[in-house]
Design a protein around this nucleic acid. Structure first.
Length: 110
DNA sequence: TAACTGACTCGGT
DNA sequence: CACCGAGCCAGTT
């Protein structure tokens, strides 16, 4: 599992482009890559992003703004802590004002 | 080689 | 309004 230049890299590049204090959804990234339903793969790519410390995976949440992937971090509350540190308000694993801080690659990155 | 899994999303009931 | 099932892509076993 060395650095592979494939789907993972593409996802990582987009995640790296997420501005601080902003978040996006797996589906948005998947859609940017051309596969709206490939959101599952995006999450899988995030799992592989562990070897990439430059990938702010904590800024990627599901469409509901729920921190579904928090359990895959070092600490269960690491993800929420990082987001709150950037000014994101999170209550019960759910991001507040999601529509305000939501960053859509198709819309913003275009 | 074939089958299973997964940090998702949408639509129907 | 809440729960259930199906669809999607690629990597892993």
């Amino acid at each position: 599992m060395d650095q592979k230049n494939n789907f993972f890299s593409d996802v990582w590049e987009i995640v790296k482009l997420i501005p601080e204090g902003r978040v996006t959804s797996y589906g948005a990234i998947a859609e940017y890559l051309g596969s709206k339903r490939g959101a599952r793969m995006v999450g899988w790519a995030m799992n592989a992003s562990h070897m990439m410390d430059d990938v702010p995976a904590h800024r990627v949440v599901n469409k509901k703004g729920l921190l579904t992937g928090k359990h895959h971090f070092d600490g269960v509350n690491k993800m929420q802590l990082l987001l709150e540190k950037e000014g994101v308000i999170i209550i019960d694993n759910q991001i507040q004002h999601l529509d305000q801080i939501f960053w859509d690659p198709n819309l913003e990155l275009l």
